[in-house]
Amino acid sequence: MTATPTPITRRRRFLDNRAVRRFMNNPLALIGLFMVVGLTAACFLGPLLLPFDELYIDLRARFAPPLTGAHIFGTDPLGRDIAARLFHAGQVSMAVGFLAMAISTVIGTVIGLVAGFRGGWTGTILMRLVDAFLSFPSVFLLLTLAAFIKPSPAMITLIIAVTSWMEVARIVDTEVKSVREREFIAAARMLGLSNSWIMFREILPNVLGPIVVAATLTVARSILMEAYISFLGYGIQPPLPSWGNMLNSAQQYLAAAPWLAIVPGVAITVAVTGFNFIGDGLRDALDVRSHNG
């Protein structure tokens, strides 16, 4: 943080330290951190250790069950190594999750900031927009979008982001409203600082905690969403693997090759659980009021 040292930043640094301590004392949060770090490491380092290419098709070796030779997780219907695919898919799915989180957090934060800071008509309209997006099941919206737009990883990421920024917007809006009237903002106003300066330099750092928590949970949610739409066939297209599309054809081979469904499913669950643990740990650590229980 390069801002001039004001009382606010000093107070934040103090909070940070306490937050880190609290986070480190939360076993679930640590387990989550461990799960996510472990999985990420596996996804990026794993492919280097495996003797297989995730795209190499070997039809003679199709449907090999786990632990067949060097195929620790077995092979898929085209004889590709599932472990290799799983790790590459992990890179794709997590990239989608993170990018969708980044985009949706930016959208949500900006909208929330503007709505909360400006208030009045602008605020009302923006927050009604949030309600509109929240008022139908996002899977419906997600599928409608995915079904009619040429699917590519970038597009899927964007679609997920577009359907998941509302939570953040709402949180930021509420937080900003509570911060807005505080003394230091009035002080900033009196100093004649511009609105955007006040919004981004003064208010934003103060609502960073809730945003970080929401963002962590959004990663978890985005990974799940990618899995949902890819499972339903509207998501990331082969040959690029993603955890979701590895599950897409698994239903068909459920009886004959259940590992096709089990392996990526476990990976998704581990990743999402990990992010949820971290998110919850952060919530406690940063002392963010719990929204919706």
Binding site: A227, L247, G265, V272
Partner: peptide
Amino acid sequence: SVPTFWIGLV
């Protein structure tokens, strides 16, 4: 955290 459809499949 578990995908609903996956639990369904299992």
